[in-house]
Computed example of a mutant assay.
Amino acid sequence: MNDKPTTDGGALPAYNKDQMAKAHILAEALPYMRRFTGQTFVVKFGGHAMGDEDLGRFFAEDITLMKQVGINPVVVHGGGPQIGKMLERLKIQSSFIDGLRVTDKATVEIVEMVLSGSINKQIVTEINGAGGTAVGISGKDGRLIEARKLRRAARDPDSNIERILDLGFVGEPFRINPEILISLAESSLIPVIAPIGIGTKGETYNINADTAAGHIAAAIGASKLIMMTDVIGVLDEAKQLIPNLTPAEISQLEDDGVISGGMIPKLETCLYAVEHGVDAAHVLNGKIPHALLLEIFTEHGIGTMISEPRAADDDEE
């Protein structure tokens, strides 16, 4: 044990600023730890943070701490960049429509191999190395995610005729069977889920990780859906972070063109979760070290929280 600071003539102990800052952080976090004990949080982990060794370790430490203080974390991960690299290595060409990878039979086999194999087990290993007890599963295990073929339509600008786009084995959830997750929540295990769905005839479907996380959060009655992205959250017209948003405010920002691009589908997932019983959805930058702890256990958080309107003294950020 380190020697404690000594006093000289009754003066206060010479604690350094770093020690005092740590004590302040712990004191600030305690009420949130008490509030969230026994609750389930679904955390979507993806983006560039997954490819950074240090950020992966920080994420694993945050998830482990959440479990140790009585929160039940459920991790859903993506893996688009890793899938792309593997397809390039195998010289399998792929294309995108509306941000979704067109997935033929050869591609879906690679997608499942990368998501359910290397990525899933890497995250499990990191959480176990941080002191947690993680178990890797996919949406096919226990028929956790039952999916159907996702259909998208596009209108020809010349003829104005709408045609159906074939995305191959890209799916969307139509039923979540949460029994396996409920059992894990009652144990010391932390589920880490690869977003692979199973069809009614046993087909394998590639599912967007954001979409899978939102549907899982709604199905298991999670208190929070936390979307870890590559941006700090939702920005206003001046490119400043908006800490709190309601569904009505998001709709207005979309109408005004303030929210656009890749943020729209993420917010649609957040809105789906909130509309189906999740207390709050959060969008935050996963590239910030210990982003989860900063968002959950501090007064103001670091990202954007989406929830239905509530009294000011009930706000969690």
Rank of each mutant, 00 (worst) to 15 (best):
D255C: 14
D256W: 12
V258L: 11
I259H: 06
I259W: 03
G262P: 10
M263C: 13
M263L: 13
P265K: 07
P265L: 07
P265H: 10
K266L: 08
L267D: 03
E268A: 14
T269P: 12
C270A: 15
L271E: 14
Y272D: 10
V274L: 09
E275F: 07
E275V: 04
H276R: 00
G277W: 03
G277R: 07
G277L: 05
D279T: 08
D279S: 09
D279N: 06
D279G: 06
A280G: 08
A281Q: 00
H282M: 04
H282V: 14
N285P: 02
N285S: 08
N285G: 08
N285I: 04
K287R: 12
P289I: 04
H290N: 13
H290I: 10
H290S: 10
A291M: 13
A291E: 09
L292K: 02
L293A: 11
L293I: 10
L294F: 01
E295L: 11
I296Q: 04
I296V: 14
H300A: 15
I302A: 01
G303D: 00
G303S: 01
M305C: 14
M305A: 08
M305T: 11
I306Q: 09
P309D: 04
P309V: 06
R310E: 10
A311W: 13
D314T: 02
D315A: 09
D315F: 07
E316K: 14
E316T: 15
E316F: 05
